[in-house]
Design a binder for these strands. Structure first.
Lengths: 282, 282
DNA sequence: GTCGATCCATGCCGTCAGGTTATCGATCGC
DNA sequence: GCGATCGATAACCTGACGGCATGGATCGAC
């Protein structure tokens, strides 16, 4: 009994781990509940560890179960990525997929794509817009992405820094703080700040445009990297936040990638950007 | 037909990819050859891509197959790691496993372990000796490892640098170059150098002791980080190689690790080492 | 306390995926 | 051309996985 866990077992396990409810999880998987119970029992026997605490009324993850939940997601991402990258390697029109947030390229993208075009062994680049770009990289839906550090978790990715710029507070033009030459984090203590890490208390903003709309309405204050603030709506003002850690825009790709086309894109990005001499590693 | 690939399919595929021979691969898997043929055909149908070119006399990987070979190994490592880490999370004597090469700790290990002991939420550390420490990290057999940069591939790992030291050439004491105060790479051009990257032409050395034995016998010259050269056998001499990139000893762990015990070990390692303020990233 | 509802576990059964053996067809060395 | 080699195909078999019915435990309502 030392063969590897099967993908199906991990999928079933994660359904229960998400729902903490066997019947609902079974419904989500499109199977009956007893089949699911049996898969989990088999998994537990195979691993020699209890994964769930069943109190006949509630289901909770054991510590071992929590570990498996994280690891299983990672493993399934890798399996999905394997399938997707293989399919794409066989595609009749080979190309790279670059994931980014709309407007999040600091204006560098045209130069990067032009430079990439001139690289040997480059491929056409197709751009897709998505919020969760890191996930796209991890499960193989994208080959590269424009990310922000330190806002995003870069583990498992290789990176090429493109540009480092300070954070700016974006305020209604009429806001008392809008006239200031600079701000400190403490100055915004009483504001309903959007755009920092962690959940915000204010309304949700899906895109930058929506966020700025909310700022204009006086419902929130945004703190964002400078390169997304130009040009700015005329009813808004931006002020640098001097004691916040600056944000680096970077190109990222899966660390174990060996694609020459991705390497070409990285070279092009490094060459076409202001911060273009240092190579990010590991 | 959009469910994830199964682990078994990837294992079967990799067997063929390794052997490039269906019958041998089947034997290795302990199954009959027709079953393997069918699994591969099914995989190819599922992915919509040919993985092997069968010329009725030879089997070769297609480009898509090469991609899958790399990705499948990655995915299987992740699956294995999931199982191992889950089992270990449930172990009755919780502990961390630190992988290193014997003698490769630059004498820092006792201080690190002592400091770790004093950290909150630390765990006892069990040390194992192994050459391929990166692989142990990737498939979950170790929680942390002492590695050398730039000699090893750190992608997908988080790191804490401990110490940076120059490379030393280790020669027989009687060697003409042994009296020099320093060397350049070019000085060793005519020697049979061991210990650099890439395959060496000389005899194989499994451990440092074996390598130094070979040097003493005059069969090779070693180029190794300084911290593995103290103390040195009295019949050997070491000379710094000034134009070789220095080697950094670092503590590494899986990038997506969330174990508090690993974090404690990393903090301890940073605090107990000379280069202990900068945190490695990604 | 009893009853009903909820929810996971168990028992039993059917089906098909994945295995087996036998054999074919193509290719290569001699 | 002949035998050897090797992957694909055909026909069949078995057990793992999933379905249904039901059991047993717990909790809330009254």
């Amino acid at each position: 009994m030392d063969r590897p866990l099967e993908t199906r077992e991990l999928v079933h396990f994660l359904a229960v781990a998400d729902e903490l409810h066997f019947s609902r999880a079974a419904a989500r998987l499109g199977i009956a509940q007893p089949a699911l119970s049996k898969t989990i029992q088999k998994l537990e026997r195979r691993l020699g560890a209890a994964l769930f605490e069943r109190n006949s009324r509630t289901v909770t993850l054991t510590p071992a179960g929590q570990v498996l939940a994280r690891e299983a997601r990672h493993a399934l991402d890798a399996v999905d990525a394997a399938a997707r990258r293989t399919r794409r390697a066989d595609a009749s029109d080979p190309h790279l997929i670059l994931a980014m947030k709309a407007g999040g390229d600091a204006g560098l993208l045209p130069a990067i794509l032009a430079a990439c075009d001139r690289e040997p062994s480059s491929l056409p680049v197709r751009v897709i817009f998505h919020t969760d770009r890191v996930r796209l990289l991890r499960d193989g839906r994208a080959d590269a992405a424009l990310l922000y550090s330190p806002a995003e978790d870069l583990s498992g990715l290789d990176t090429e820094p493109l540009l480092t710029e300070p954070l700016m507070a974006v305020l209604p033009a009429s806001h008392p703080l809008a006239a200031r030459a600079s701000l400190r984090t403490a100055d915004l203590r009483d504001e309903n700040v959007h755009g920092r890490r962690g959940p915000s208390t204010g309304p949700e903003a899906g895109s930058l445009t929506e966020l700025l709309q909310l700022v204009a309405l006086g419902q929130t204050v945004a703190v964002v990297p400078r390169f997304v603030t130009t040009p700015l709506r005329h009813d808004l003002a931006s002020v640098p936040v001097t004691d916040a850690q600056p944000v680096t825009l970077l190109l990222a790709w899966p660390a174990h990638s060996t694609s020459p086309a991705v390497a070409a894109l990285a070279r092009a990005a490094g060459a076409a950007s202001p911060g273009g001499e240092a190579a990010g590693a590991t």
